[in-house]
Structures are given as structure tokens and as C-alpha cells.
């Protein structure tokens, strides 16, 4: 067999790219099973006795680190908060965004394009620009430190995202398919529910996943607009860094646990992301 120099170079290029993206994750995963001592050793060790102390500590809310006082963390509550905020945000976004996307895709109404663009422009403003006024307003009207307020603010990020992605998918569905369904004798709502939504499902799934990731990873809004009672993992992880110690193992462990839900969701949604469902029913 002839060995092509390009194929060898390509092979090493792939390896380099994979290393670049996956090595940090692998290393963090590794760290989460080490003690602080092992992590901080000058020459990193590759072989060690894995410990589950970090995970156990995270679960129980307290962990003793050698040479320091016992640390207390609220990671479990943070994780629950993250779940409530993300699932809540995505649900609200789906409820509002999907019908809105359909309206923008199908109906030409006065100022329609302007409204759609205004919604998109919410994403142009840096979060830091609006966070202080928002904080003042929310304190004034008593929304500070509530799930509702955070889910509301998250819509600034998630709603335009979903709206613009799903709108494109609705536009790709031939209106004739919906008309055909109505001529069969179904109402408008039935055609929306049984034809438009299923056909736009890949788009809705992809957009929901992105929204979930954005909501899950949000840091700044949750940091300013809520107390520790409602703060998600992104903010909660700050508590790991104290004046007395930085428990790297615990942090690594927290990262692994907080990445898991997004990862599982992405794997689960993958099958809906398959394109080309609508190919072949329409000629031309």
C-alpha cells in the first residue's frame, strides 16, 4: 500500500484538533478523582488511586481538606436552581417563541419585520449594560431574588435565539401542505399542531438545546439579580474559592457534574436534529 504523506499529515492534524478540544475535559475529569495534594504535585501524576471523596463531599455539602478547616458548599441546591431556571426558561421560550416564530414566518403584518428585529437586537446589548438598571427595577417592584425574575430576564437571551432559528424552519415548510390539511377538514390549530410543529421539530429541538445551554451557562444575571438561595451552579461554584483554600478536586468535580445535564440532553436531542425530514413530499 502506498502511504500518502498528506494522509499522514491529516491524521496528525486530526489528533491535534481532538487534543485541543478534548484534553481539558479529560484532565478535569481526571482531577475530579484526585486529592488536592495529587493535583498540586509539581510533576503531574498519571497513575494514582482514584478517590470518590470529592463527589461524596459535594453530595453531603461538607468536605474536609487536609490542613484546613471543613468547607461547606450548597452545590446540591445550586444544581436544583440551575435545573429550575433552565427548564423554566426553555419552557417559557417554547410557549412564546414557537407561535411567534410561526406568525413571523407565515403572516405579513404591519411592523412585523421591525418587531422581529427589535427582539433580535436584545442580544446586541451587553448584559453588563442593562444589569444595573434591571437590578434597581427589580428591587423596586419586589422581583429581586425570585426564580420568576431570572426566568424573565433569561428570555432576553433565549427568546430571540429560538424565534429566529425556528422561523426559518417554518418558512421552509410549503404552505400548501398546511392548506392541504385544512382542505381535508382540519381546523387551523390542528394543522399548526399536527403539520407545522412536527415538520419544524428539528429546528425546535436545535433551538431548545441552544437555549438550554445559554440558560444553564448564564452567570452575570444570576450573580446580580439573586441571592444564594436561587443561584445556579455557575455562580455557586464561586463559593469553592475561599480565602483559606482552593479545593481543585472539588471544583473539577463540580464542573463534571454541571456539564453532565447539558451533555445528556445534547445526546438525547441529537436524533431530532436529523435533517431532511421534509424532503420528498413536495416536488420542485
Amino acid at each position: 500500500m502506498k502511504i500518502n504523506i498528506w494522509s499522514i499529515l491529516k491524521f496528525f492534524a486530526y489528533i491535534a484538533i481532538i487534543m485541543f478540544f478534548l484534553f481539558p475535559i479529560a484532565w478535569i475529569f481526571n482531577m475530579s478523582f484526585m486529592t488536592n495534594d495529587e493535583i498540586l504535585r509539581k510533576v503531574p501524576v498519571l497513575f494514582y488511586e482514584p478517590t470518590f471523596k470529592n463527589y461524596l463531599g459535594l453530595w453531603q455539602g461538607e468536605i474536609a481538606i487536609e490542613g484546613f478547616a471543613t468547607m461547606y458548599v450548597y452545590f446540591k441546591q445550586n444544581l436544583i436552581n440551575s435545573a429550575i431556571l433552565s427548564v423554566g426558561s426553555v419552557s417559557v421560550t417554547l410557549l412564546l417563541g414557537v407561535p411567534a416564530a410561526y406568525a413571523f414566518a407565515r403572516y405579513k403584518f404591519k411592523g412585523g419585520e421591525d418587531i422581529a428585529f427589535t427582539l433580535l437586537s436584545f442580544r446586541f446589548a451587553p448584559a453588563l449594560l442593562i444589569i444595573l438598571p434591571l437590578n434597581l427595577y427589580f428591587s423596586e417592584i419586589g422581583l429581586y431574588d425570585s426564580y420568576f425574575a431570572l426566568i424573565w430576564v433569561y428570555q432576553l437571551i433565549t427568546l430571540p435565539l429560538l424565534l429566529w432559528i425556528v422561523r426559518g424552519y417554518f418558512e421552509d415548510i410549503s404552505p400548501d401542505i398546511e392548506y392541504a390539511y385544512r382542505l381535508d377538514g382540519h381546523s387551523w390549530f390542528q394543522s399548526f399542531w399536527r403539520i407545522s410543529i412536527p415538520l419544524a421539530k428539528p429546528g425546535i429541538a436545535a433551538a431548545s438545546l441552544l437555549c438550554f445551554i445559554y440558560a444553564w451557562n448564564n452567570f452575570v444575571f444570576a450573580l446580580i439579580l439573586g441571592s444564594s438561595a436561587i443561584q445556579p451552579v455557575t455562580v455557586g461554584a464561586l463559593a469553592f474559592i475561599t480565602a483559606s483554600a482552593i479545593p481543585y478536586g472539588l471544583i473539577a468535580c463540580g464542573i463534571v457534574v454541571s456539564v453532565l445535564p447539558t451533555l445528556i440532553l445534547a445526546l438525547f436531542i441529537q436524533k431530532y436534529l436529523v435533517q431532511g425530514l421534509s424532503l420528498g413530499a413536495i416536488k420542485g
Binding site: 400548501d176 392548506y179 392541504a180 403539520i195 416536488k283
Partner: peptide, 20 residues
């Protein structure tokens, strides 16, 4: 009358079958 209220059916030039 809306399409669903008329006793009329239609075959479309582009077939308009439900792909799913």
C-alpha cells in the same frame, strides 16, 4: 367559509403530501 368548512377537496400541483 374556511377551507375545512367547504365540501371541496384539492390535489396540488406539488402534491403537498404530509412528509411525516
Amino acid at each position: 367559509l374556511h377551507p375545512e368548512e367547504r365540501d371541496v377537496s384539492m390535489a396540488f400541483q406539488n402534491f403537498a403530501l404530509y412528509p411525516h
